[in-house]
């Protein structure tokens, strides 16, 4: 019994320590993001490369996915509200569900699966390979050179890709609703405009930024926790991705609470 309680206590202490550690790391990164000296030529090059790998390379797949998923989602929503006689809620459902919920969620999952895991492994490998020590030897701050561009990339990529998803989904939904349900473009646009709220869009943009920030920060922090041993790489990746998943759920719940206020 005592052992069991001890285990719970240990787990709680670990969770608290991780949470505190991530928050502290987040504040350090945030402080660096707002420092002018962080933005040197080397860092900018890393940032461009990161955006290229995270957003541009994924673009063809992402565009197709947005169009298919958007049409499908809007088709389902239209069918359901038509059957239930809730046509007047179409705008609210589309804006509330597709734009503010589904699009950041799908984007963040895609980016996390593809880029966060890669970043986690990359940092862990650099640590094991002593490449981080090399940077240190040449007086290159790893936070400025490696972490800040990756995290800014996370924010920019999630924000832009999510907005792109929303725009593509709503546009394909417009064509879909015209072809299948005979809904005119004007009616569709008016319904959406009527339900769109600047406050909701603000929350949506902030949510995307927070998502982007944490789904890159957590894997980086986790990658850093790898030891000098090669076998610590998969462990660091695994732990990092679990934390990313928890963070996604946590932010999603928080944003829902914030929107409902």
């Amino acid at each position: 019994m005592t052992e069991f309680i001890e285990k719970i206590g240990k787990a709680s202490m670990n969770a608290t320590a991780t949470f505190r550690d991530i928050l502290f790391f987040a504040f350090t990164i945030l402080a660096r993001i707002f420092q002018k000296k962080t933005y040197n030529s080397a860092m900018k090059m890393v940032l461009v490369n990161q955006i290229y790998f995270t957003s541009v390379q994924i673009l063809p797949l992402f565009t197709v996915l947005s169009i298919i998923l958007g049409s499908l989602l809007i088709g389902i929503v239209l069918q359901i509200i038509k059957n239930l006689g809730l046509a007047e809620y179409l705008g609210r459902i589309l804006m509330g569900l597709v734009v503010t919920e589904i699009s950041p969620f799908v984007t963040v999952l895609l980016v996390a699966l593809r880029s966060s895991s890669a970043m986690n492994a990359e940092i862990a490998v650099m640590k094991v390979n002593k490449e981080l020590r090399t940077l240190d030897t040449y007086n290159i701050d790893v936070i400025d050179y490696l972490f800040v561009p990756r995290i800014i990339n996370g924010v920019v990529s999630v924000l832009l890709l999510s907005a792109l998803f929303s725009i593509l989904a709503l546009t394909s939904g417009m064509i879909f609703s015209k072809l299948i349900f005979g809904m005119s473009f004007d009616v569709y646009t008016n319904v959406l405009l009527k339900s769109a709220d600047i406050y909701d869009i603000d929350i949506y943009l902030i949510k995307c930024c927070i998502f982007g920030f944490f789904i890159t920060l957590i894997p980086i922090r986790s990658g850093l926790s790898a030891s000098d041993d090669l076998t610590s790489i998969p462990i660091a990746v695994l732990q990092g991705m679990v934390k990313v998943f928890i963070a996604i759920i946590f932010i999603e719940v928080l944003s829902l609470i914030l929107i409902s206020l």
């Binding site: 040197n40 030529s41 080397a42 860092m43 040449y138 007086n139 290159i140 400025d144």
Partner: peptide, 13 residues
């Protein structure tokens, strides 16, 4: 190689 000058002297790419 370029990294050093880019980082410390902000030398363009």
């Amino acid at each position: 190689v370029a990294l050093i000058k880019q980082y410390h002297e902000n030398l363009p790419n």
